[in-house]
Design a protein around this nucleic acid. Sequence first.
DNA 1: ACAAATGAGATTGTCGACAATATAACCTTA
DNA 2: TAAGGTTATATTGTCGACAATCTCATTTGT
Lengths: 221, 221
Amino acid sequence: MTFFNEQPVTAADKTFFQLRKDIVEGEVASGSKLSETELSTKYAVSRAVIREAINRLESCNLVERKANVGARVVTLTPEGLVELYQVRESLEGMAARLAAKNMTDQEIGDLNVLLNTHFQKVKTGESYYQEAGDVDFHYRIILGSKNKHLISMLIDGIYHLVRMYRVQLGMTGPRITTAFDEHKNIVQAICNRDEELAEMLMRRHILYSKNNVEKKLEAVN
Amino acid sequence: MTFFNEQPVTAADKTFFQLRKDIVEGEVASGSKLSETELSTKYAVSRAVIREAINRLESCNLVERKANVGARVVTLTPEGLVELYQVRESLEGMAARLAAKNMTDQEIGDLNVLLNTHFQKVKTGESYYQEAGDVDFHYRIILGSKNKHLISMLIDGIYHLVRMYRVQLGMTGPRITTAFDEHKNIVQAICNRDEELAEMLMRRHILYSKNNVEKKLEAVN
DNA sequence: ACAAATGAGATTGTCGACAATATAACCTTA
DNA sequence: TAAGGTTATATTGTCGACAATCTCATTTGT
């Protein structure tokens, strides 16, 4: 998976990545306050570095900040999850449309290869698919859109929040084979350069995914 | 117009707003370098404040930053404009869909009132409509979606860049009366709680708008 | 007893100085 | 002369200290 090729260069980068990881994986609790002095001792950097990291986390929608008061990790709610999937439906639908238009034949070929490797794993019953595989599939289509803003909004803007919901609410269940078929149909539409269909199928795919996630959410509560 | 109710509280806020205004309106040239020391003397604040402002501007897609090198104001290109409108089509389409679902009857009533005042101004030939009126219309529907991420992405994320294109490429021409009719139909769909149609009409509206803007862009070059 | 005012403590916001890095001019050498 | 290395300069990154603001407990007055 060629996902996280972003590599830190400054101390603020490292701190940002580390803090983001800790938040997404729940090591820093959802809803908890982010004290600048406390974090600066914990991560052994100055407050200026922490402040920059927190600012970037705010851009990712992972923390909320109030002037002269401070920053808190976002709280996860069913409503928030629904809103997130609504945005995903919209943006990733458009991404699929643009991918059908802009991906090279080479890239589409690679996508088919990826799908085949997933198919092998699904057949042998490996559970690898759901997490990394699904992410990788969506990631490639997003990049395939070749739209800078779309890519930035999805990858930098909401992907980590989606992952935070998945990790912290334990959304790593099945829905493997059906999701695989949906992926296959989306790729087929992209192969055919059918923008309209690619968008529609991607939107449905995310809608199904949302319904599935909501069902699990109800089961938990 | 109740657009900019955001009011600065810290020095970083003020500097951010001022710098954003200067960039959008072209006072700070597109593509120019943002020197931290230079700006700190110009705006009479410390470099820390400037750095925070620049970080926020990066989140708005108004400047691009490279580690250890610095920040530059984004350059405006025809391709960038197309990408921006593609994202708008996607997000504002979804906003219209959600507005048809989530706006209160009161809010829809207010929207109709707004439309009527615009109609009066269009009839008497005032050009006020295009700029502020169009913005206000879209703004209300975005807020009407009641979706936090959608609102944040559109208002904080891309609106100012859209405005930067409009101002600097002189996109303040006609397309008044036809756009008005499109607005009217969108509101009608929202009145009828027809989510499907509201989204479709909004997407078309933005598509037309994009084509119109592109035509002007060609005329300029 | 309750509400508003006051003050102590802690947290965020801002600042100037220093360290690390990139850019560009200059020098060296083939 | 051109290519490569080196130094000088300027810019960004990081730090600790101080100022401004908020929070909350205590006090004060009715």
